[in-house]
Design a protein around this nucleic acid. Structure first.
Length: 837
DNA sequence: GGCTCCCGCCACGTT
DNA sequence: AACGTGGCGGGAGCC
């Protein structure tokens, strides 16, 4: 797909010269150009942007003088000649414009502009001139974007801290010559970004952009938590080709309720929305969500269609056409304001289906790095290692409590918990779950949606029921002790590429294997990991072919519809798609035990369709224990019959940590499942953020590698699809046999993460992994065995941008976007606490 | 004809 | 009851 950029200010200017484009320019000006004006980038009070004119005048009722704008500073290049201006004006002025009746209305604005007018006014002057001509401003001139520009021009982008700029809505409305209603539209969006805050009736306080980055950071984090990337991918993938069908999509509708939660949470992160009234001030929430979509998107381009869809789903609205239209209208409103802020610009994405309106994020993205802390913190909080206990939860909540809306959030989360999380943890819902409630629920939500979609799309597969009630089914009824292969031959490796200097021996020593004791097949002195049953999900499927991964995803992606991704080229699209299905909602890819043939798998392995993994997280997978339509199996049955390919160990915080996949065979021994049944995957995989492993070198076991590289790739690929946060945090510990799996939780005390040097792997700064896992991955020829690029598209991380996701494929990340989330976990933690307030 | 999105009705919440 | 907010969608401008 190609994206046609919107007109830039520059373009606009140049365009103005040419008559034909004038109108277009005018419009674009409103939208695109505005961006320039209010650049987020730390800029001192706007410089010479067109709109600045209006503000220059000191009009600001609030009387904050804005530094004079310099024309020179403008990005614009082309000088504007008076003639050109005239031309433009004339072109812009259309017959309709001339309604005198309304002219009055706009007077104020015009006047202001005129006053302000200097050279800068040039662009806007046109409007003024027109007015002078008794022409009523054209629709363009009345656009919300332009109005917002004017509004923004009244206030300094970076007001002095000492200043307390108060905005009177009435005053603003009157001075801008518009109805108050319009001001609300603007203010609501600004408020969503904390640029302003409501202090009293009709009174807002102008904060400027001082906290914008922080706000964006928080939004990004929230977006990650909400798995928006997954949603985006989902819709992209599914595209609307199936729209019709989509409309009816049951899954989506189902999800809606849960999706709301995110929004609520969102608001909780920001003072702005006071939860509660009037749909929580949807415009604000919509704005935040909209921004989040950009922030979590790898391509930074979001089509209105997708945004609307996502927002509709979240709001539980019926996805009828009217709703969609309404959403789109609102999105335009928001987009206009955001454009004025210079955060986005309009573009068009050309897809197979045609050209679609979209917006591209042009705002700051660097804050991400800084934000890393936040993410980490969350993760940390949730990470089992740290304290998945109530304490963590409490701390987290406290943070949230700062926000008025939090209470609301809580309630919601509680509900969710009941619905989603609770079921997922057979044994007992770890408190950690609470932390992840929203996240988990969302993921579950997505999974469900995806699953349905997938099912629909590929009717051939069946997934374990996602029924929330059954989600836990996936959990194995037992805890698992996984032998950690120790092989000198294998060097320790960092998640991905880095090899750890640390010698395996060291680890071994640390891990003191006591295998001797068990008959599980532990070797003497072999270290093992203890995995509490609650943390274990069994993934069943064919092992096998890469197809499993790719095929699963690929099948869909290959479809024409897949390409429709709005973003950029095929690649992105593909990624997204994959992400949607795999990454997002479907964190897991399950290797097939059976032959690649799905059909066969289905029959033989009721629960093992590859799909399940993808789609759903563990829940479904694990829960694969039950297929909705087909047979229901007891957990035990599943374990034995399903021939688990992998055991999925969700990291406590799916966000930051990697989820672990253990080859079933590896664990089966402990479980009593015959390995013979698990032919393909002999390699135990455990994926953890490298940083977390800093302290622990990976152990690679020779045994593991039996499978061909392909398998390995597969398995690795599967790793990529971890479902963060879906479930309870895994409790994993290395113990000596002597120390049996006593209460896992208690034992999990090995939170290497904190200790681990952040430097370990840039790719995954998140150290929040709850457990230290020995990773028996045989060094592959490819430097990045863990991240089968072949299988996965580069940007897949979108989905996993979520804190947990970050950790997904360290290798990938490292290579692809090392810079992102570089901050150390410690740093992130610090950040987390800081709020935009 | 579709995309944009202005405009203002009207409902909800607050004062 | 009046007023503040803001959801909502008709319908017109614009392409």
């Amino acid at each position: 797909m190609e994206i046609s950029g919107c007109l830039t200010l520059k373009d606009l200017i140049s365009a103005k010269k040419s008559r034909p484009d004038q109108e277009k320019d005018a419009r674009s000006w409103q939208k695109e150009n505005m961006c320039d004006r209010f650049r987020i980038s730390p800029r001192v009070p706007l410089k010479g942007e067109p709109i600045d004119l209006s503000k220059q005048k000191g009009l600001t009722p609030e009387r904050y003088p804005i530094t004079p704008v310099k024309v020179a500073d403008r990005p614009l290049a082309d000088p504007w000649t008076p003639t050109a201006n005239l031309k433009m004006l004339s072109s812009v002025a259309s017959p309709e414009i001339r309604d005198r009746e309304k002219k009055e209305l706009f007077r104020p604005i015009e006047n202001n502009e005129q006053e302000d007018a200097g050279l800068d006014t040039q662009q806007f002057e046109t409007v003024d001139d027109m007015d002078d001509l008794d022409k009523r401003p054209s629709r363009k001139q009345k656009s919300l974007g332009l109005l917002c520009q004017k509004f923004l021009a009244r206030y300094p982008s970076y007001p002095m801290s000492t200043e307390k700029t108060t905005i009177s809505l009435d005053e603003a409305a009157s001075s801008l010559g518009v109805g108050r209603r319009r001001i609300y539209d603007i203010v609501n969006v600004l408020e969503s970004l904390n640029l302003v805050s409501r202090v009293a009736k009709n009174q807002y306080r102008w904060h400027g952009q001082h906290n914008l980055n922080e706000t964006l950071r928080n939004l990004q984090r929230e977006g990650e938590r909400q798995q928006y990337s997954a949603q985006i991918a989902y819709f992209q993938h599914k595209d609307f080709g199936t729209e019709q069908r989509k409309d009816s999509q049951p899954a989506a509708s189902m999800e809606l309720p849960e999706m709301d939660c995110p929004s609520v949470n969102l608001t909780s992160c920001f003072p702005l929305a006071s939860a509660g009234s009037r749909k929580d001030k949807s415009l604000r929430i919509m704005s935040q969500k909209f921004v989040m979509l950009f922030l979590v998107s790898t391509t930074k381009i979001i089509t209105l269609e997708i945004a609307a869809k996502i927002l509709i789903e979240e709001s539980q609205d019926i996805s009828d056409h009217s709703k969609f239209k309404t959403k789109v209208r609102r999105l335009y409103d928001i987009a206009n304001v955001l454009t004025s802020l210079g955060l986005i610009k309009k573009v068009h994405v050309t897809e197979e289906r045609g050209r679609k309106p979209a917006f591209k994020w042009i705002g700051p993205v660097e804050f991400k790095t800084e934000s890393g802390k936040f993410i980490d913190q969350d993760i940390t909080t949730t990470s089992p290692a740290s304290k998945r206990d109530a304490t963590a939860e409490n701390s987290k909540q406290q943070r949230l409590l700062r926000h008025s809306s939090f209470t609301h959030v809580q309630s919601i989360s509680t509900v969710k918990r009941k619905v989603c999380s609770e079921p997922s943890s057979p044994h007992k819902a770890p408190e950690a779950l609470l932390q992840h409630d929203s996240y988990s629920s969302k993921m579950a939500h997505l999974s469900a949606i995806c699953r349905q979609k997938i099912e629909e799309d590929s009717g051939s597969f069946k997934f374990a029921s996602n029924n929330p009630a059954h989600r836990d089914v996936g959990h194995l009824p037992f805890s698992v002790v996984v032998p950690v292969p120790v092989d000198p031959d294998y060097c320790t490796r960092d998640s991905g590429h880095q090899k750890r200097p640390a010698s395996p021996n060291k680890i071994q020593s640390q891990l003191k294997v006591m295998a001797s004791s068990s008959g599980h097949g532990f070797l003497p002195n072999q270290p093992y990991m203890y995995v509490p049953s609650t943390s274990v999900f069994m993934l069943c499927g064919n092992s096998g072919n890469e197809k499993s991964l790719d095929g699963l995803h690929g099948a869909r992606s290959s479809s024409p519809s897949d390409k429709k991704t709005t973003e950029d080229g095929d690649q992105p699209a593909k990624r997204q798609r994959i992400g949607s299905t795999d990454d997002g909602p479907l964190p897991l890819v399950v290797p097939k035990i059976c032959s690649s043939d799905r059909g066969s798998c289905d029959t033989s392995l009721p629960h093992n369709s590859p799909e399940p993994c993808k789609e759903d997280n563990l829940h479904s997978v694990a829960s694969s224990s039950r297929q909705e339509e087909t047979t229901e199996l007891t957990k035990e049955q599943v374990a034995s019959a399903a021939l688990p390919q992998y055991l999925y160990l969700p990291s406590s915080t799916g966000l930051n940590g990697f989820n672990f996949f253990l080859p079933a065979n590896q664990t089966t021994g402990a479980m009593g499942i015959s390995q013979s049944q698990l032919p393909h995957l002999n390699v135990p995989y455990v994926m953890v953020p490298s940083s977390a492993l800093a302290a622990f070198p990976f152990l690679c076991s020779p045994a593991v590698t039996s499978s061909a590289s392909s398998d390995h790739a597969l398995s690795t690929a599967s790793l990529n699809y971890s479902l963060a946060g879906m479930t309870t945090p895994p409790h994993i510990m290395f113990r000596t046999p002597s120390i049996p799996e006593t209460s896992p939780e208690m034992q999990q005390g090995v939170p290497p993460t904190s200790a681990s040097p952040p430097s370990a792997s840039p790719a995954t700064a998140d150290s929040s992994i709850s457990a230290v896992l020995p990773l028996p991955v045989k060094p592959q020829k490819s430097p990045t065995p863990l991240t089968p690029k072949s299988i996965r598209p580069v940007h897949k991380d979108t989905f996993f941008k979520t804190p947990g996701s970050l950790g997904v494929s360290p290798a990938l990340r490292k290579n692809e976007r090392p810079h992102v989330r570089n901050s150390s976990s410690a740093q992130r933690r610090l950040d987390i606490c800081s709020t935009t307030d």
